[in-house]
Every structure is written in C-alpha cells, then in structure tokens.
Amino acid sequence: MDNNSKKKAEFRVLKNGPLQVTGNFTLKCSEGKVIDTKEMIFLCRCGGSANKPFCDGSHRRVGLRD
C-alpha cells in the first residue's frame, strides 16, 4: 500500500496506556532523522519505556493514569 492510498492519520489514546498511531504518518526525531515504523505503532506516554519512543508495557509498572 503506498502513501497515497493510506487513510488520514489517527491517534488513539489508549486509557492508562500508549498512543496508538495508524494511517498516513511519519515519525521523526527533533533534528529530522526519520525512524522507520510499521503501519501501526504504539508510542510510550508514561515516560518509562526502555524502548522509547515505543511502548514496552512499562505503563503498568509506572502506574500511568489518564
């Protein structure tokens, strides 16, 4: 599936968990370096992941609460 046929990006806030991103998006570092991703990603929101920017399940240990 190429970029043009992808749907508009959707950010789904999972309760007490990560940010699920799907659709047409790119992921970059502050200075512009592109990070290759799958079509669906889960971004850490609790600050505790050892695999940032991605979720590793640490939100349960950290006790993230929305």
Partner: peptide, 19 residues
C-alpha cells in the same frame, strides 16, 4: 501526512492532517 516529531526531552509534536 501527519508528521510526528519526537522532541528532545519533551513531547511528541504532531503536525498535518490527523484525528
């Protein structure tokens, strides 16, 4: 396309078309 920028020591800044 939505562009997600991982800010150093800061948030995710998102720009573009997204919901």
């Amino acid at each position: 396309p939505a562009e997600i920028r991982i800010m150093k020591n800061g948030p995710y800044v998102v720009e573009g078309d997204f919901t």
